[in-house]
Design a protein around this nucleic acid. Structure first.
Length: 409
DNA sequence: TCTGGGGTCCTAGGACCC
DNA sequence: TCTGGGGTCCTAGGACCC
């Protein structure tokens, strides 16, 4: 096991045999915060938190100085400010993050065709075929880290291992700004002392269940019969954890991923009881979901509504459509019916809508307009025939109160 | 302390069909 | 009168990840 990083510990990764560790997991360090700091270099050594500065927001990202105060992603912003009053809060700029993400991912693409993106700031690479041209996995990892730094100014950490799961764990242990190689033969030696919470798929609830059974380390899990784990955690999870704890993870690095759902949700700054306001927000969300479906050439077979009440209980209601659709009007009609069917309910803090069971759309779709009132919708060409979906008849006002419906002049 | 927004996957019960 | 077994689909909820 060898670690190489930019700080005090300098163990040359080149001295370790990485030939049995062809799977790389590359993870950008404190990504959103690091991107923001490119524009504010004078803040680099101060605690910086990226978050929308609103009463109910949470921390989107924190740099390492802020983490020293115990600030973590997903922590309520109010709590983060109490822990670290000196923190500078910066608004997020997601378009900027997507830009840097594309730059970094294209560096990965230069190394191997086998790149699996995992969200905006990490990826798996299988570099087993890169040997002749670029060198060993450790040499590829070092090259990646250098290029990412030179070309974007960002730091990333890399884990190299024989499986995805161990590579991901290794990149986490390499942070910040490090490289950690786990040769295949040293996998169990690396895994077994780690706490169960390090396992992929073990969150708070599962950790508690494992603690109740006196299982604290990955080694404890490896030594427990598969059947016992399945009884304690369910068939699928029990089996998966047993495999991972024993270093078994047959998942390949795959390049293509099919989108399974598209959704938007929004938390109100103040809980909402007014039905008209809920429907207005629902319509806005459906408009965004419809636009995204059309932009991706997809149609939904199912529409799901999500409500979170003031006490944080969350319900969902879903319904299969008679025909797949990518139109905000259809999504909204269904979502509104689901909302109406809920009946009396407590004040709402979050409302969301999700398009599920996606299929490829039947023809080429165009987003045609983006009007002053914020409404957008499409026309669609199928087999050379263009069907137009009304404009004025789809104005938000007409959907909210059908009386306002009127034909297009 | 008071909990975002984007997703994926699993479980479980009931309907329905053969 | 008391009663199958399997398979699939649909829906609701929850855990988890970044």
């Amino acid at each position: 096991v060898s670690k190489q990083d930019g700080s005090a510990r300098q163990v040359s990764a080149a001295s370790v045999d990485s030939s049995t560790s062809p799977i790389l997991h590359v993870d950008l360090d404190a990504f959103f915060a690091s991107v923001e700091l490119l524009d504010h270099p004078h803040l680099a050594n101060r605690p910086v938190v990226v978050a929308r500065d609103s009463p109910r927001s949470v921390v989107t990202a924190a740099n390492y100085p802020a983490r020293r105060f115990g600030v973590r992603s997903a922590m309520p912003l109010a709590q983060a400010k109490r822990r670290c009053p000196s923190a500078v809060v910066l608004e997020p700029h997601f378009e900027k993050y997507r830009h840097y993400s594309r730059l970094v991912m294209s560096i990965f693409d230069d190394m191997t065709p086998t790149v699996e993106r995992l969200g905006i700031d990490e990826a798996f690479l299988d570099v087993s075929g890169a040997g002749k041209v670029l060198g060993s996995p450790a040499q590829v990892a070092t090259l990646i880290r250098q290029r990412v730094r030179d070309e974007t100014g960002l730091a990333c950490s890399v884990g190299a291992a024989s499986t995805k799961f161990v590579a991901k764990l290794a990149s986490g242990r390499a942070k910040p700004d490090g490289l950690l190689v786990i040769p295949a033969a040293e996998t169990l030696e690396f895994l077994h002392p780690l706490p169960v919470s390090a396992l992929w798929g073990v969150g708070e609830a599962t950790e508690q269940a494992l603690t109740r059974h006196a299982l604290h380390t990955i080694g404890d899990i490896a030594a427990t019969p598969r059947e016992s784990l399945q009884r304690a955690l369910g068939t699928a999870l029990g089996s998966k954890l047993h495999d991972l704890a024993n270093g078994i993870d047959p998942r390949r690095v795959t390049t293509e991923r099919v989108e399974k759902s598209v959704g938007h949700e929004m938390t109100f700054e103040v809980d909402v009881t007014d039905g008209e306001q809920l429907r207005r927000e629902l319509l806005r969300l459906c408009t965004r979901v419809g636009a995204r479906l059309r932009a991706n050439g997809l149609e939904a077979n199912t529409v799901a509504l999500k409500l979170r009440y003031a006490d944080f209980t969350t319900i969902s209601r879903s319904r299969k459509l008679s025909t797949p659709s990518d139109l905000a009007r259809t999504l909204f009609t269904e979502a509104r019916a689901l909302l109406d069917a809920v009946g009396e309910h407590p004040p709402v803090r979050l409302i969301g809508v999700r398009a599920e069971q996606l299929v490829e759309a039947g023809g080429a779709a165009l987003t045609l307009w983006d009007q002053d009132d914020g409404w957008r919708d499409a026309e669609r060409t199928v087999d050379g025939v263009t069907r137009r979906f009304g404009i004025d008849s789809l104005r938000p006002a007409s959907l909210l109160s059908p009386r306002a419906d009127r034909p297009r002049p």
